[in-house]
């Protein structure tokens, strides 16, 4: 997956590089990338979802020579890309309902099978609300039947399109419009959580992976790997939302990077229910550095603040680091 790096200026951390051989450069570095979501879309400044969707769909388009159909759940991605009569999508794209993107994907795949079109592939995509809450039943069914669809979840950790309401992917202690920072336990409650990549793995489908918009090469490699397989596949991409997270629009990629480097968002790959690879943390940092950049966590740091909640979030990150072995063995956990 990772060719050996014979290059020390930036290695393969950057999008492309004049010193890398073309096959080591990312799809996004290419003049021929399909720009699946064209300019002129109405996403906010610095939208992580617009970025994540273009990264993933462009990579899928290259992997299948442009023979791709997308089903899209309701949500930001759908709303900002297709206000009537304009569309930003440069591939066949179908929107039906909030909760049925996985089922629509299943139907398209079934239709293609009937027509004998083995060359055309299917993706279904949605935000965390359409995936972890509203579309969860359809998605689980798609997994269970092992339908030939790659489902892409762009996780920005709340219902951003309707004005930032809590979803089952909203992190603990985060402020949303339905989890206000008031009372003894402000923000989203510390519940059980709902880790959809792990739930997908429990279906033992061919491929499950997580990625962020901060590591483009990794994300593209995972899409390419997924498109080389058949059956139900799931890719969960963390996409920071400047509006909903209360962050600077320039910090979108930085936040995704910090989410990985703190251990808050483990980046991994699994096949048939078994973890096959994890992205190691390169420069470990405390969760506070990640949280402080986001106004949705501002109540944790005011006076008197909630150091016990910061400690609880740190403990969650530490558990991820331990559980998924996110550090190299040489480093102490």
């Amino acid at each position: 997956m990772n060719a050996s790096i014979k290059f020390y200026q930036t290695g393969t951390f950057t999008v492309g590089n004049r010193l890398l051989s073309p096959e080591q450069r990312s799809v996004q570095a290419s003049l021929e990338r399909s720009n699946a979501i064209n300019s002129g879309h109405r996403a906010c400044q610095g939208c992580g979802e617009a970025l994540g969707a273009r990264y993933a769909v462009d990579a899928a388009m290259r992997a299948v020579n442009g023979q791709l159909i997308a089903a899209n759940a309701t949500g930001c991605l759908e709303v900002f890309s297709t206000p009537y009569p304009e569309t930003s999508w440069q591939l066949p794209w179908i929107h039906s309902l909030f909760g049925n993107a996985a089922a629509v994907g299943t139907g398209i795949a079934a239709a293609l099978k009937v027509k004998g079109r083995q060359d055309v592939r299917v993706i279904a995509q949605g935000g965390d609300g359409g995936t972890t809450d509203i579309g969860f039943g359809c998605l689980s069914g798609m997994f269970e039947r092992n339908d030939d669809v790659l489902y892409l979840c762009y996780d920005n950790e709340a219902y951003m399109n309707t004005g930032v309401q809590r979803s089952s992917a909203t992190p603990h202690a985060a402020r949303t419009n339905t989890t206000m920072p008031v009372g003894p336990e402000p923000g989203a409650p510390f519940g059980q959580g709902k880790k959809l990549p792990l739930i997908a793995m429990a279906h033992e489908i061919p491929y499950v992976a997580t990625a962020t918009v901060a590591d483009l090469h990794d994300l593209e490699n995972k899409v390419e790997r997924a498109m080389s397989m058949h059956g139900a596949r799931y890719l969960h991409v963390l996409v920071p939302c400047p509006l909903g997270w209360g962050a600077d629009s320039a910090d979108t990629i930085k936040l995704a990077r910090l989410a990985r480097e703190t251990g808050i968002f483990p980046v991994l790959e699994a096949e048939r229910g078994e973890v096959t690879a994890v992205s190691k943390i390169r420069r470990r940092i405390p969760v506070e550095e990640y949280l402080r950049l986001q106004k949705r966590f501002a109540h944790l740091f005011g006076k008197p603040g909630h150091p016990e909640m910061v400690a609880a979030i740190q403990a969650e990150a530490d558990r991820n680091i331990c559980r998924f072995k996110l550090l190299d063995k040489t480093e102490a956990v």
């Binding site: 020390y8 492309g16 590089n17 004049r18 010193l19 996004q28 300019s39 610095g46 939208c47 970025l51």
Partner: peptide
């Protein structure tokens, strides 16, 4: 190749890749 090329574009394609608006 260890040079960081401080302050001068070395065509790493980052800006081209990270723009959410192409």
């Amino acid at each position: 190749r260890r040079c960081l090329s401080c302050g001068n574009c070395f065509e790493c394609d980052n800006c081209y890749g990270v723009c959410p608006d192409n």
